[in-house]
Nucleic acid binder design. Structure first.
Length: 459
RNA sequence: UCCUCGAUAGCUCAAUUGGCAGAGCAACCGGCUGUUAACCGGUAGGUUUCUGGUUCGAGUCCAGAUCGAGGAGCCA
């Protein structure tokens, strides 16, 4: 009995006879030759059958074995530069084939398919090499997130998914029955993490979050994964240094560990290789000035150029860049701004009025708060939102009252400012948006194995 | 919620001014010892999303519905 091995390990078995256990990804035949593309989850390998090595019936049956049939194949590993595959360069000269199950007609072919069809087949689509590659990169990103934080002394704390009465208005919260009462699916674990830091110093929560936004864009899901670190004795400047180290580590880890996957995706890795701290920082005020200048240039027919000298993409009409001081950025603004930089860029100091109630205002300029978004390059936009939190009890209470929030729900949160309050900061990074950026995806729906969107709950 | 576009074979798409429903891929049959989304020959495959209307005649025009895509709003 030959040794069972994985395709990822084939390079260590050249010259040996091994068995692979997997599925038929694709096949082609040419007279007395059959080429089987076998995938096993770790990679994809070409297996070659010569008619002379098999009895007639077996050979003929394999010629018409349907795509995605499960099979065990045994043969000699050869280094073969002509062989396609992932990682490629090796093939199996087959001696025997055991069909575990002959599949029925498989709906997804190596040819072109539409989005709706593929999303309906998502349970099968994840087997396709492109989806396989990017979901493995997602796993690397999630591992890198935990690895960096754990290594830096952060403690992982689970925060509740079921949360009590509306924290910030119910319009974008999913409501669920909770016995005689109502509960809401969490949009963030941040407020709980602010309690956790007073026990543990540096913490993070990592899990799914839910937003009932009726958003139908390439960057929104109703269920997505977010990691939220929160740090005691940390101001906004220190927070930005943490964020840029964190993001750099994630990108560099993918570049190191997912060479084959990035190749499958045909990702231009030169755009990722320079993602190293520090990242540029511009103020909200400066961003506003840049946007107004871009808009004026477009209207005057002056070419608006990216950081690399190419024309800015994705803005068809200068009116898309309309904005006044005090407004939050829309996606056209982020798309335009990010193309001015080769690295992610921090936008620092948003108007207090458009941000959450808990963000610390600047003492000398209270209309602006100590907040920063991190926008990913190449038009991808916001992947992190973060801020220094209000540490003073009375200032926080005043903000809660200004926004007409239910004070009784925040009693415990206000308590945190009564028993040893300290300056503290935190941020949230969206996993799917990060995956979309690093993998170069056009739409965030592929960045989740089974995405939940406005109009899609199946499969 | 709004704007724009779309729905034809299993899939991706054609179909001229309103005039016989077409192709590629997949499937099936045959050929080929190095294929890379192979190639060559053949077979089969249709309630043109649904409902109604105009017309001698509707895939095509009109109205409504359903579903989908892109964008906007929304997204602390």
């Amino acid at each position: 009995m030959a040794t069972v091995t994985s395709i990822a390990d084939l390079g260590r078995h050249v010259g040996e006879v091994v068995t692979l256990q997997g599925w038929l990804y694709d096949k082609t035949h040419k007279g007395k030759l059959i080429f089987l593309q076998v995938r096993d989850g770790s990679g994809r390998c070409q297996c070659v059958m010569f008619k002379g090595d098999f009895d007639e019936a077996t050979f003929e049956a394999l010629k018409s074995l349907p795509q995605e049939s499960s099979l065990r194949v045994t043969g000699a590993v050869k280094a073969e530069p002509r062989a396609p595959g992932v990682p490629g360069g090796f093939e199996l000269a087959l001696q025997s084939v055991e069909v575990v199950q002959a599949a029925q007609d498989y709906p997804i072919t190596p040819k072109e398919h539409g989005v709706d069809f593929l999303m309906d087949q998502r349970h099968l689509w994840i087997r396709s090499s492109r989806q396989w590659a990017l979901l493995r990169i997602r796993a690397t990103i999630m591992r890198a997130i935990r690895g960096w934080l754990d290594g830096a002394g952060y403690i992982e704390m689970s925060t509740p998914v079921l949360t009590p009465a509306a924290a910030e208005g119910t319009s974008n919260l999913f409501e669920v029955d909770y016995f005689e009462d109502k509960a809401y699916l969490a949009q963030t674990g941040q407020l709980y993490n602010e309690a956790n830091i007073f026990a543990f110093g540096k913490v993070y929560c990592f899990g799914p979050t839910f937003r009932a936004e009726k958003s139908k864009t390439r960057r929104h899901l109703t269920e997505f994964w977010m990691v939220e670190p929160e740090i005691a004795y940390c101001d906004l400047d220190q927070l930005l240094e943490i964020e840029e180290q964190f993001v750099s580590y994630i990108v560099q880890t993918v570049l190191r560990e997912n060479v084959a996957e990035l190749k499958v995706l045909e990702r231009d890795v030169t755009k990722l290789e320079n993602i190293m701290a520090p990242f540029p920082r511009i103020s909200y005020d400066d961003a506003m000035a840049r946007l107004k200048q871009m808009q004026a240039d477009m209207r005057a027919g002056v070419p608006v150029l990216r950081h690399d000298g190419a024309p800015v993409q994705g803005i068809d009409d200068p009116a898309q860049l309309d904005i006044e001081w005090g407004m939050d950025f829309g996606s056209p603004h982020e798309t335009a701004l990010t193309q001015l930089y080769a690295k992610p860029v921090f936008i620092v100091g948003f108007p207090t009025a458009v941000k959450a109630f808990y963000m610390e205002p600047y003492p000398d300029r209270p209309e602006v708060c100590k907040s920063a978004d991190l926008l990913a390059p190449e038009g991808y936009g916001e992947i992190i939102g973060g801020s220094e939190r209000i540490s003073d009890h009375d200032v926080l209470l005043q903000r809660i009252r200004e926004q007409s929030l239910p004070e009784e729900n925040y009693r415990w949160y206000l308590d945190l400012r009564r028993f040893g309050s300290v300056p503290h900061s935190g941020f949230g990074l969206g996993v799917e948006r990060t995956v979309a950026w690093i993998c170069g995806l056009e739409h965030i729906r592929e960045a989740s194995p089974f995405p939940r969107m406005l109009n899609r709950m199946y499969p």
